[in-house]
Design a protein around this nucleic acid. Structure first.
Length: 289
DNA sequence: ATGCCTCAGCTCCTGAGA
């Protein structure tokens, strides 16, 4: 079972790359079960649902003209779809959630030989559903601005809502473009970006508050290369110089973390012609790593 | 450097991104 998140910076421009990438994952024998997209930058009526359907994927989307916009692309149909944070009045299309029923084989722990010699499976091994939240967190521009204040309000509302979601969905994935780094290891120039946007103590405190609900940063469950980033500025050859930030994250709940098998940034699409400034982050779960 | 690059749109510039 595989989850991924990718800020595509205009789905109209990046659609061929998204379809190629999905096809490449499937061809490699590990198709993506749920892909969260951010920055569609298109109105709902422009969403290329037919192209995804032709490729064999379901889609749920929440767009708006010019800016923002999120979607969930999936191999099975999602249910209980929610758009934006309930009770939080927001002019931006930033959040989409859906529940996916997954085959038993996908979520079952590998059978372990018990003392009796009989296979012993984990308490959560019954077939179940996974709640998936795809989110495009506000950028925030700079501390002290109205946009930063909005980001803080949004983060507070998100935390309260995710807490409620966790109460009913112990198996939950929260993934997307967080626009927040966890710590200096996520920043190519920690001194130069000290307390700058994406790196402020205030933002990181909000990110930590999400973790404290009972979530894990999938990436840090596994050894990672040095200078492991998910976004690079288009300017100054930042990708070539690996001057980036890790701001795209996949958080998994306590109920799912034991099933995590690997998590990595896929830098290949960043090498495309006309790439997004973000690369996909990919999490594999279950016995079939 | 209020720069650099990329994208959308009331498109020949501006706002926004990060």
């Amino acid at each position: 079972m595989k989850f991924a998140t990718w800020n595509v910076n205009s789905l109209a421009v990046r659609l061929p790359q998204v379809l190629d990438w999905l096809a490449a994952q499937a061809a490699a024998g590990a198709p993506v079960d749920v892909l969260a997209l951010q920055e569609l930058k298109m109105a709902d009526e422009k969403f290329p649902a037919a192209a995804f359907a032709e490729a064999g994927y379901h889609a749920q989307w929440f767009g708006q003209k010019t800016y923002n916009g999120v979607a969930l692309i999936s191999r099975t149909a999602g249910s209980s779809v929610l758009k934006n944070i309930p009770g939080f009045d927001d002019e931006h299309a930033r959040v989409i959630a859906a529940t996916f029923d997954l085959p038993a084989a996908a979520t079952a722990e590998p059978a372990l030989a018990g003392d009796s010699g009989h296979p012993v499976s984990a308490a959560n091994a019954q077939p179940g559903s996974v709640r998936v939240i795809g989110a495009y967190f506000p950028n925030g521009q700079a501390p002290g601005t109205d946009k930063f204040a909005y980001k803080m309000r949004w983060l507070h509302a998100l935390r309260n809502w995710v807490q409620q979601e966790l109460a009913t969905h112990p198996r939950l994935v929260l993934m997307g473009d967080y626009n927040i780094t966890f710590d200096d290891a996520d920043v190519w120039d920690p001194e130069g970006m000290r307390e700058a946007i994406h790196c402020t103590t205030e933002e990181r405190t909000h990110l930590r508050a999400l973790i404290d609900l009972g979530l894990h940063d999938s990436m840090r469950l596994f050894p990672q290369p040095e200078k492991n980033y998910s976004w690079w500025d288009y300017r100054e050859f930042a990708f070539r110089r690996n001057r980036g930030l890790r701001i795209d994250h996949i958080l998994v709940s306590n109920g799912l973390a034991p099933l995590a098998r690997s998590c990595a940034v896929d830098k290949l699409p960043r090498k495309n012609e006309r790439p997004s400034d973000h690369a996909p982050v990919v999490l594999s779960l279950g016995a079939a790593a």
